[in-house]
Design a protein around this nucleic acid. Structure first.
Length: 287
DNA sequence: CTCGGCCTGCTC
DNA sequence: GAGCAGGCCGAG
């Protein structure tokens, strides 16, 4: 997996079951090499706060904002962003590990929470695009200030989309990926949403009709919810913190289906780079 | 706004 | 060896 909103939400739900109510016995940072890497810098910057403030804290609640996972500890919030390859595992010390699950901690494991009840949370990130932050509750608003409305909340409205797209000549693909007009969509779900709404990803934001905006506003939460119901999308060997795979990959309509027939009309699905990301669409269903 | 850069590992 | 990968940020 690489996590967009549905995958992070799936992880949130698993963590809520597994670690809420537990106490943090110790927080362990394992700085990656090279020391100049951004994850290493991020962890070094946060490491004192992490080890000083986490010990003894108890986990009250797990929440999510867009693709950020938030472990609520009362006044403090421990925030994870998983980047492209971040993973979180929770296992008991003696628990039999799943086949396909890495031996933990391995060389890609950069943060460990030792929890009461002999369980541990491992943060692992092969490409090191992930980040960890510890902030105070009062800083939460500022921390997330750049994010657009949460697509599964009432803050997300046709009007918020309309004003975001207004007079923009950037493509819908880049606008939806940008996290500013609406947050939580990544490369997969952006392609899926645009297919279901029947709009080409290269359409400039300013050229989208009110009718399409209304359809888009309905399709975004619908698809995200469908993906969450299926525990997100899993490629290759991803496992959520419970060692389970997602199931949405079987329901993808365009993502990864280049050269295959469109499920609606049979036309060959195209793929090209748009907004620097591999983008999939049906040239007949999307106008 | 677009682009390159950040990272490692996998596939061709 | 090149190109690609589910994200994001900062430079120009």
């Amino acid at each position: 997996m690489m996590p967009e909103l549905p995958e992070v939400e799936t992880i949130r739900r698993v963590l809520a079951k597994k670690i809420v109510g537990r106490r943090i016995v110790k927080a362990e940072v394992r700085l990656p090499n090279p020391a100049a890497s951004r994850l290493s810098q991020n962890l070094r910057q946060q490491t004192r706060r992490l080890s000083r403030n986490l010990r003894g804290a108890s986990i009250k609640r797990i929440s999510r904002r867009a693709k950020y996972l938030i472990v609520r500890l009362g006044e403090a919030l421990l925030i994870f962003h998983l980047g492209m390859t971040g993973q979180i595992f929770v296992i008991r010390k003696k628990e039999h590990t799943h086949t396909g699950m890495p031996e933990l901690p391995d060389k890609h494991t950069y943060f460990i929470l030792h929890l009461s009840g002999d369980s541990r949370l491992y943060f692992r990130d092969i490409r090191k695009f992930g980040r960890i932050h510890l902030i105070m509750k009062k800083e939460e608003k500022t921390f997330f200030r750049a994010l657009g409305p949460e697509p599964l909340s009432a803050a997300f409205t046709p009007e918020s989309l309309r004003s975001g797209f207004k007079r923009k000549k950037a493509s819908l693909k880049s606008l939806l990926l940008g996290q500013k007009i609406v947050s939580g969509l990544g490369n997969i779900y952006t392609d899926e949403v645009l297919f279901q709404v029947g709009i080409l990803p290269q359409t400039p934001g300013g050229c989208v009709s009110g009718k399409k905006i209304a359809k888009l506003h309905k399709a975004i939460p619908r698809i995200l919810k469908e993906a969450i119901r299926n525990r997100g999308t899993t490629f290759s060997d991803y496992y959520d913190p419970e060692s389970r795979r997602g199931g949405f990959q079987a329901r993808l309509r365009v993502y990864g289906r280049q050269d295959e027939p469109c499920l609606k009309c049979g036309t060959r699905i195209l793929k090209a780079v748009i907004a620097q990301r591999g983008t999939h669409w049906c040239p007949r269903c999307q106008k």
